[in-house]
Computed example of a mutant assay.
Amino acid sequence: MISSENARPANEGLNEKEPVKIILAEDDKDDQELFIDALEAADVPSEVVTVENGQELIDTLRDETQPDPDIIFIDVNMPVKGGRKALEEIKSDKELKDIPAVMLSTWNHPSDIEDTFDKGADLYVQKPNSFGGFVLILKKVFFLHWTKALLDPVKKLFFVSERNI
């Protein structure tokens, strides 16, 4: 289960917006830290809960004691239950299907992107090679989230990488 140290508010001092409740499903601890640091640098007030695989993500989403997230970020390649399988379960669950799901991957292969789009992902983000790139990507993702553009993803805007920001 998730320990309380996994939930960390980012940008606690900012009061312009209600903090975004985020679940990050990512098995790499360094990538978890990079994500949280990039959120802070992007000035996204947030509360992040981290899980390390797709099964923990499903369990957390179904846990009545946990608040519903505003958005979830799912690494495509994780142990126990991969991101695609978790996405499929989330989008086929009537209680969870409306939570925006952003897929994260180092790969940008068109068939992977197409597959996650078909399974109901709202956005596919290629993990950037730099911290600055991650900050820019998160700014774009949250701009899309706050403008409700993730509610009905358009295929040509579905893939985000450092090169197309």
Results as ranks from 00 to 15, higher is better:
E52R: 00
E64T: 14
D70K: 08
T65M: 02
E40S: 15
K119D: 01
G120M: 04
M103Y: 01
L138M: 13
E56L: 03
V135G: 12
I74Y: 00
I36D: 10
E12H: 10
E47N: 15
Q126P: 04
N108A: 06
V44C: 09
D112K: 09
D93E: 06
M78N: 07
F158H: 07
D37P: 02
P9E: 15
E12F: 11
K85V: 11
L151P: 02
T106F: 06
F131Q: 14
P45K: 15
A86M: 04
S111I: 11
L138R: 04
P9Y: 14
D70R: 06
G120P: 01
L138P: 03
A86D: 02
I2F: 04
D75C: 04
A25K: 00
K156L: 05
I113S: 05
L24Q: 01
N6I: 00
F35Y: 10
V76C: 10
E47W: 14
T116P: 02
F143V: 11
Q126N: 08
P110H: 05
E5C: 12
D63S: 11
V51K: 07
L14A: 11
Q32D: 03
P69N: 05
K85I: 09
S111V: 13
D37F: 07
V135F: 12
F73G: 01
K119C: 02
Y124F: 11
K81W: 06
V141W: 00
N15M: 14
W107C: 13
D31F: 13
E16R: 11
E64M: 12
A41F: 10
D63C: 06
L136K: 15
I72T: 06
V125Q: 01
F73M: 01
T106A: 13
R163L: 05
E88K: 12
P153T: 14
L87T: 11
T116A: 04
D93Q: 06
E89A: 10
P100A: 05
N6V: 00
P100Q: 03
V80D: 05
L123R: 03
G54Y: 00
D118I: 04
K140M: 09
S4M: 12
K140Q: 08
E26D: 07
I36E: 12
K29C: 05
E40F: 02
D43M: 11
Y124M: 05
P45A: 14
P45F: 12
L87N: 09
E52W: 00
V154C: 11
L87D: 07
V76T: 05
G133L: 08
T106H: 07
I72M: 03
Y124L: 04
K29D: 12
K85N: 10
N15G: 12
I71N: 01
E88P: 06
L138F: 10
D63N: 15
V141D: 04
E5L: 13
H145W: 10
L151M: 14
N53S: 11
E114F: 01
V125N: 00
I99G: 00
G13V: 09
D59Y: 04
T147P: 08
I165D: 07
N53V: 06
K29M: 07
L57F: 01
L57W: 00
W107P: 03
W146H: 15
V20I: 15
V80C: 09
K156E: 14
S92E: 13
P128T: 14
A42L: 10
M1V: 07
Q32S: 05
K140P: 01
A7V: 15
K85M: 12
D30T: 06
R163K: 15
K140W: 01
K21N: 14
Q126L: 08
F134Q: 10
V141F: 01
G54E: 02
K81P: 04
